[in-house]
């Protein structure tokens, strides 16, 4: 979806633009604080100060660790299943045509409703969180990989045949470089959605992790905690995504 966001070949604008956007967001936040008061949200300064003090505490890092572990497992599982399924369905055209709309439909169902089922199957704790992350992330990875293989220009395979490349050479030197950027985009989207899934999973199915801290803060009306954890999660998600986006663009330029 965001693949076509940036138009290539434009000069970089003033370096001031992005700090200005951040400033505008901070002002909105301050405005929200002024309007709603400290029973709903803490001010930017107070939140950053509290977040900084949290970063020095052990309990915070053990929660970060719990989320990171669950996220790591989910991402590995979702990527492996997604890429393999996408490659298989892309190469076997018939199966791809049969399943693609089904997958697209599965992608649009509210997966939160499946949460009771996941809990009944996996119980509370790490497996349920991982499963939640996987069901959020696996379908976009599959769909992007499938689209990458399906959209492969036929001329590439024909030239590979004309040059009498062996199947191994074709795979390594033609197929892989052609589909890699697209698959990477899929993994980037999968990354975000898996994180989302793990956080939602932690809100219900866990006694630990960032999602749990947020929900705990909501339930105890600990606004300071909720706002600080939300800030840390949001900043981390945006930074990670920006890094992946930069790598994504580099991959595409190489081609």
């Amino acid at each position: 979806m965001s693949a076509a966001l940036a138009r290539p070949g434009r000069p970089r604008g003033l370096a001031l633009d992005q700090p200005l956007i951040v400033l505008a967001l901070l002002l909105c936040w301050q405005g929200a604080y002024a309007y709603a008061g400290s029973s709903a949200i803490t001010s930017p300064l107070a939140t950053i100060a509290y977040a900084a003090s949290m970063l020095q505490q052990g309990w915070f890092w053990s929660n970060v660790g719990a989320t990171a572990l669950a996220f790591f497992y989910s991402l590995v599982i979702a990527s492996l299943i997604g890429v393999l399924a996408g490659l298989g369905l892309g190469l076997w055209r018939f199966a791809g045509d049969v399943t693609e709309p089904v997958l697209a439909a599965l992608y649009t169902i509210p997966k939160v409703t499946l949460y009771p089922l996941i809990l009944l199957l996996f119980g509370l704790g790490l497996p349920a969180k991982v499963a939640f992350g996987v069901i959020h992330g696996v379908i976009p990875v599959t769909l992007f990989t499938l689209a990458a293989v399906k959209g492969l220009p036929p001329v590439l395979l024909r030239s590979a045949r004309a040059m009498r490349l062996s199947p191994r050479q074709t795979l390594l030197h033609v197929l892989a470089p052609a589909v890699l950027p697209e698959i990477f985009t899929g993994l980037r989207v999968g990354f975000s959605l898996t994180l989302l899934g793990v956080l939602i999973g932690e809100m219900f199915a866990s006694q630990k992790g960032m999602g749990f801290l947020i929900l705990n803060g909501i339930n105890l009306h600990n606004v300071k905690l909720t706002t600080a954890v939300v800030l840390i999660v949001v900043v981390t998600a945006i930074l990670a995504n920006a890094g992946l986006l930069a790598a994504d663009k580099r991959l595409r330029r190489q081609r």
Partner: peptide, 24 residues
């Protein structure tokens, strides 16, 4: 161009965490 990184990272943010703020 300035908003591009924000748009690209938008769906990486689990927004329903803002729900309590919105209730207020």
């Amino acid at each position: 161009r300035a908003l591009d990184p924000l748009l690209a990272s938008y769906y990486a943010v689990p927004f329903f965490v803002f729900y309590p703020v919105l209730v207020a």
